[in-house]
Design a protein around this nucleic acid. Structure first.
Lengths: 346, 346
DNA sequence: TTGAAAGCGCTAACAA
DNA sequence: TTGTTAGCGCTTTCAA
């Protein structure tokens, strides 16, 4: 194994100098730097991560924490994780995975105390998340992919639900829809981010109010069957509904089936937009969507968190990321019984 | 921070003794052990992971590697990863995530040389996978979640496609199906495990031959649209087909839609079984399935790999794990034009 | 059965 | 601008 001592010897400098060439922590005469770099090159030197972690007190590893009580896992969850790993790598950090239940919180503390990880990036953040308070009290750095109701001064990145709601409602309004429905996530479902559900529902309601549209919101469990029932209930409650916003992937699938059963073909007689994570391209018709930008959110969260690790006292970055509306096949001008299709401007 | 020296002092022993109590590497007088354990308890001692990694030369970290050229990510991919992390944790190991393209292979070597990871567990293994040969040549431990065509003496765990094929074909035969179709994964799709596709198709064919059933196999791209076309093609080629085995999640979704369009309702006029990873419970009707047991496969692969790390010269474990057939709503007795429904025993 | 001490490879404070 | 050196906390060999 090639060590820093070998490099120093070959370059004719001290080991300290080699370190400083690597870290750039102090100015080095260009000529010396060259010699050192050449020697490293020549020897194929690779710094030992464990040694520098031990000596420097920084493992450059962060943990991503999933609740161990797993709910339905969708493909995009992995997208978050992979994007986080990639973003961390770009900053010279690594990501380890950890699953933890309410009873395992102590294990998180031990992980940190063992010096293995410098902090925790939480996924599936609930409105009120005990992991957050626990880690904060333990003095262990925390960041969020998502948000609690009161993120305070924690670094986080989340979807900008206000923007998403506004964009989607505007889109539907421009297609002439006047009565909108929403299939929300279950309120019971803390792990799934009920915080987001509440925030998004509020945002949809506000956006509808702004444009003077009617809006009915129905919560559904995260199953296809529940989604079918939810749509039926929605259309019972508000028969005028011509467009539905889905914020619950499984329920949205159910709604698609139920719409067919109710002879409300999509998009001709019912428009549907998916706003949650899910797989809008895997349905038929493919779903028009404005889904949270998983990769961007994860990257931003990692950036914010690593910055926070470097400067714990500075106010951390807290970012809300906009989604893009992708029009596919599930939205169309509002159906009017009398056959007139009114497109409403802007 | 509490160190081993603190514990030693309080227990009135040497630091070496504390280490040995922890590792159990040599016999300790029970009384001494007690004193040490008490001291650790009292001080809340937690060993420093970095220090032991440095001194012991073992980071107890393994990396899970994804191809960076990502294909469609399904929910079950994360299931593998989380299960692997959990299994590793039980063995006192940690899992870091890495994504790597063909050009990044050197980074893998550096990760290992830096002492950060002890080896690599590869996901999305292709039939002929350059990562494997690269790492083997570099002398870096490799394990597989999946298999290459020639796994040689590598530790791995994979689904037992022979068993799955036989079980599913038998199930269909027992429902009276005599003509079976299969929607296979695309042959182009190296990252997706064409190896598995070939193996599974062969196994299905063999199982059908054993039971004297007709069998038509059509490959499809991994899109809903391609699946629709594939089903049409399949039914054109073999109109007698009454049951289809899906080994391509997106294409299976497409087949469901196309079946409806062709007035072949599932399951009354066409049975469908999902055998690939996917979300059989998210469709309507829910899919009867025999999908690879993701959690078990990942755990077994991790076990095999960690064992291999501990004893590199012993022949590594190579495991094929059976799936369970879960009957849901998409299979039914074969439809007979004349109305007779023949159930064929066992 | 236990203790002492020499590293593991690197960082960073202190000197020069 | 560079060198020297004392740790970082643990493992493990060698002696006792």
């Amino acid at each position: 194994m090639v060590t820093r001592a070998d490099v120093a010897r070959l370059a004719g400098v001290s080991t300290g100098t080699v370190s400083h060439v690597l870290t750039g922590a102090r100015s080095i005469r260009p000529e010396t730097r060259r010699k050192v770099l050449d020697a490293m090159e020549q020897l194929g030197y690779i710094p030992n991560a464990m040694a520098s972690a031990l000596a420097g007190g920084q493992s450059r590893i962060i943990a991503i924490v999933f609740p161990s009580q797993p709910r339905t896992i969708v493909g995009s969850d992995l997208e978050y994780v992979l994007a986080a790993a990639e973003a961390a790598r770009k900053r010279g950090f690594h990501v380890v995975l950890w699953t933890s239940g309410a009873d395992d919180l102590n294990e998180l503390r031990q992980l940190a105390r063992a010096g293995l990880v410098q902090g925790f990036l939480l996924m599936q953040v609930a409105l009120s998340d005990e992991r957050v308070s626990f880690l904060k009290e333990a003095g262990i750095p925390v960041g969020l992919i998502g948000r609690t109701s009161e993120p305070g001064d924690l670094p986080y990145a989340d979807a900008d639900f206000g923007q998403i709601a506004q964009m989607v409602v505007k889109h539907l309004a421009s297609l002439g829809h006047r009565t909108i429905g929403m299939l929300n996530a279950s309120r019971e479902d803390g792990t799934r981010g009920i915080g987001a559900a509440v925030r998004f529902a509020d945002a949809v309601q506000r956006s509808c109010a702004d444009l003077d549209l009617d809006c009915t919101i129905v919560a559904s469990e995260h199953t296809v069957r529940a989604g079918r029932e939810a749509l039926r209930q929605l259309l019972d409650t508000a028969p005028e509904t011509t467009a539905v916003i889905g914020y619950n992937w499984e329920a949205t699938l159910g709604a698609m089936h139920e719409a067919r059963a109710l002879d409300r073909p999509i998009p001709e007689r019912l428009s549907l937009v998916l706003c949650s994570n899910g797989e809008p391209e895997s349905t038929d018709p493919e779903l028009t969507s404005a889904t949270p930008p998983a990769t961007e959110i994860a990257s931003a969260a990692v950036e914010a968190f690593i910055d926070h690790l470097a400067a714990p006292d500075a106010p951390p970055a807290q970012r809300l990321l906009p989604a893009l509306l992708i029009e596919r096949q599930s939205t169309a001008p509002a159906f009017r019984p009398n056959g007139r299709v009114r497109a409403k401007g802007r």
